[in-house]
Design a protein around this nucleic acid. Sequence first.
DNA 1: GGGTGGGAAGTTTTT
DNA 2: CTTCCCACCC
Length: 904
Amino acid sequence: MGSVVLFGPRGRGSVPARVAARVALRVGARRADPPRHQRRQRPHPRVHRPIRHAAPLRRATGQHPDHRDEVFPVDRGVAGPGPMAGGDPIEPRFGPVRQGLGRPRGAGRHPAARPGGPGFPEGQRAVQPPVSRRTFLHGTTVRAGAVARRHGAPGSAAGRSSPLTGGMRRGDCAPGMAFDLGSLNPQQREAVVTHQGPVLILAGAGTGKTRTLTCRIAHMIQRGIAPGHLLAVTFTNKAAREMAERVREMLPTRDRKKNRARDRAEPEDPFLQRPTLCTFHSLCVRVLRQHIEKLGYKRNFVIYDEGDQVAAMKKILSSISAKGEKTDASAVLAMLSKFRNSGPNSPVFGDESVRALAEHVSKRYESALRAANAVDFDDLILLTLRLFREHPDALESCRRRWPHVMVDEYQDTNSAQFELVHALTKDSRNLCVVGDDDQSIYGWRGAEIANILDLEKHFPEVKVIKLEQNYRSTNLILKAANAVIRNNPRRRGKNLWSAKGDGDRIVLHAFATDEEEAQTVVDNIEFDRAGRRVGWGSQAILFRTNLQSRTLETALRKAHVRYHLIGGQSFFDRREIRDFLAYLKTFVNPDDDVALLRIANTPARGLSDVTMERLLAFSAERKTSVFAVMRHTDVLASFQERTRDAIRGFVAFIERIREPILLPERISLTQWADAWLRETRYLDDLRRMEKDPETADGRVRNVCEMVADLDGGPRRAAVAAARRPPARSIAVEAGLVEAPVPVAAAEAPAPIESRPEYDGSPMDRLNDFLEDLTLDSEREEKEEAGDAVTLITMHAAKGLEFPHVHIVGVEDGLIPHARSKLEGTMDEERRLFYVAITRAQETLRITHCGSRKKYGQLLPCHPSPFLKELPEECIQHAGDGSGDPVGAGKGEDFFAAMRAAVED
DNA sequence: GGGTGGGAAGTTTTT
DNA sequence: CTTCCCACCC
Ligand SMILES: Nc1ncnc2c1ncn2[C@@H]1O[C@H](COP(=O)(O)OP(=O)(O)OP(=O)(O)O)[C@@H](O)[C@H]1O
C-alpha cells in the first residue's frame, strides 16, 4: 500500500461508475447452471456514464498535465520523534511556512480570494485544483445517445473564475484563509483546538461540522502532530477526497514530488506520511492487505461486489433447496448482512428452524467466499475486527499508526464500525466524531443512531460540542427544514439559525405527469442560466430513487444541458463490464469459482451448462475449486473427448494468460488484456450477439476503455491507446481512438521501465484496479466535471450543498417510500426529506406530480404528506401549468411557449 | 452444445 | 417498460 491520502482509491486516475449488480452469474437456477448468455439485454439506453463514451474527444482535445501535486508529506520542520499515542506535541514545528499561509492564527483572510485571484500569494496558484474540467455536452456528439465530453484547457475560462460555475463544495475554505481560527465560531474553534480526549460534535445540518473536522486536521498538523498519525473516516470516498483537498488547501505545499500511481513504499516516519482519509471499507482493506494472511486468506483477496455475492448465494441456495424452489438470493444476503453487522443485539429469528437454516446458509456462504479467497463489504469490517481480536499485535500496530481518530457522518455508522473505532481508540481516547441524529438515513443498512447518542456510555469524559449557526441556507429554507424534522419523536432538539436573510420562499410546484415535471425543472434551470447567470454547476436535482433520473436525463439531453449523474448503478451492471471483470478476477485467482463460472463459456467454447454443472458437482464433492477439478485426470476422463479438449484448452488458456501477471516484471496490462481479448474473440462475440450495431459499439467501447484504464487510469488511457500499434489495436477497431498518423506510430513508446504507470507488479496492479472499482465505483476522473447540473439521490446528497436545489417526485409512496410504511421507518423517511431540504443554500423548489410512469403505465400519485409539514409562510405555490405567474419569474411560460412554437 | 422466442416478474436508499 | 428465466428449437 502506498503512502496515499486516499487509499483504496489510489492516487491515480481512477475509474468511474458503481458496482452493484442485480445481474449476476446464473448459477443456481436449479442446482447450478453455469453462466449463459443473456440475450437481448441491451445497454442502458440512457447514457449513464457519459464519460465512457468520450474517448475520441479526449484525444482530440489534448491531454492535460496531471496536476496531482502532493502536499503531504509536509515539511517536517523540526526533527524529532513523532508524538506517541496520548502525547501532545510540544511545539508547533510545521516547517517554513510560505508567507501568508498557515499562519497559526489571526491571519487576515480574503474569503473572496480564489486561486489565481488578486492578492493571492505567489506559489499558491500551483495548489489550485487540477484543471481537468471535463464536461459532457449532450447533443454534440457523433452518434445519437452518445455523449461528448470536453475538457477545458488548463486554466481556461471553464475554470473557477467563470461566473457560470459554482456548485458543491463543502467544508469550504478558500486557500489562503487556511484554517485561520478566526474564521470559525467559538464552538467550532473549541473542537478544532481540542486535540486530546474524546470529542463529539452533535449538530444540525449546515452548521459546519465537516468544515470543523477538516480544520481540526489541518490545525493538528500545524501544531506538530504527525500527519501520518491522523485517521479520518468519512462516509464516502468522494467525501474523503474532498476533505483531503480542503486540508491540502489549508496547508503550505512543499514537497512537489509527483504523486506516482503506485508509490508503494510508505515512509516510516509519520511526519512524512500523509494523514489517512478514507471510508471504513478502504481503511479495512488497507489493514487487511497487510495482515489478512494471519486469518488464512491470501494477500491478494478480491472484494466481491453485490453481483458476485448474489451469484455465490444463488449457488448455495440452489444446492440446498429443493429444485424448482427459488429463494431470493439478495433478500437472503440482506438479512445475512443485517444479522452479521448488528453486534450483540442481533435480531432473533422467531422460528428455530429458520434460525438454523440461516446459520447453515451463512456458514456455507462464508466458506464459499473463503474458498474463492474473496471477501464481501461486510467481511472487510468484520474480518478486521476478528483480526484485532485474535491478533493483538495487529491491533497494537494500528493503534500506534493512528493515535488520533476522527469520524464524519457518525450517525450512519453501524455496530461493527463502532467496534472498530472503539478498538482503535479505547486506550488513546483520542476520538473525535461528528454527526447529526436528524440526518441518520442509513438505518436500513444497519446504522445505529445509538452510536452517536450513546457515545457517553463508552466515553464518559467526552466533550460534547453543539453548533447552532447554520452557514448554508437562507432562513426560510432552514425554517421549513426545522418544521419538518420537528415532527419526529425522540430527537435531540436543536436551535438552528442562520445569519443569512430570509431569502426566497420555497417554490412548490405540482404537475400532471413526471415528464412535465422534468421539463419544467429543466426550463427553470435554463431560465436561471440565461436570465440570472446561474451556472449549471450550482443546480442540483434530488430524487428518491435512481429510476427517477431517467425522465430527467431525457429532458436535460433534449435541452442540451450538461449534467452529471451521481450513483445509479448501471455501468458495472452491464454484461460486458461484468464479464471483463470476471476475466480479470479469474486470472488473478482461477479458484474464484464465481468469476470462473461466469466466463467459462463466454464466449462459447464448448463448456456447456451441463458440463459446468458436472464440474461444479465434482468440485463440491472434492472440496476444491472448479478450476482444480478441471485438471483432475479422472474428472477429465468422465467427459466426452470433445468436451475434454474444451476443458483442457480452457485450463491451458487461463494458465498461459496469467503467467506474466505472476511474475514481478512490470508489463503493460493494457497490452496484456488487449492480447487475450483478441484471442478469445470476446469482442466479436459481443458484437455478434447484439442486434443493434450502435449498442454493440457502445459495449465494445466500454470494454476498450476498461482495458485502457488498466494502465494508469483513464487520464493516461488515451495516450496509451494512441501509442499502441495502430493496425491491430482493439481501441482503434472499436473507434475508441483514431488510428494514429504514421508519425505518431513511428514514435517509439517510452520504455516501460521509465513510466510510472507501470510501477508495481502486475498482480498488485490488477488487485488495485479491481479494488478501486469495487470500493470506489463512483469516482470520476476528477471531481469537478465542469459546469454541469448534478443529478443525485437524496441519500447520496447527504453532506453536499448546492446554491439551487430541485427536489422532484415528492409524492406519497416515493418519499415516504411505500415500503417504509410497511417497515415502520417513517421517521427515517422524514429525516431523508430533511436532508434533502437542507442541501439548498439559496433557492429550493419542490415538485410532485399527479401521475407518474411506472411499468410503462401512467399511475396516479398524490403529494407527500410531508409537504403539509412545511409552514405556509415558507412556501409559495407555483402555477399548476395553467399559466399563472410562477416562482422563478416568467421562465416557465417563456420556455413553454417557445417549445410549443417549435414543436408545432 | 448452442441459439432463439415467449412469458413472467419486479422496481429504495449504498459501502 | 425492462430484465430474467425457462423451454424449445437447431
Ligand atoms: N464558521 C464558518 N464561517 C463561514 N462559513 C462556514 C463556517 N462554518 C461552516 N461554514 C460553511 O457552511 C457550509 C456548511 O458546512 P459543512 O458542510 O461543514 O456543514 P455540516 O454541518 O457538515 O453539514 P451537513 O450536516 O449537511 O453535513 C459550508 O459551506 C461551510 O463552508
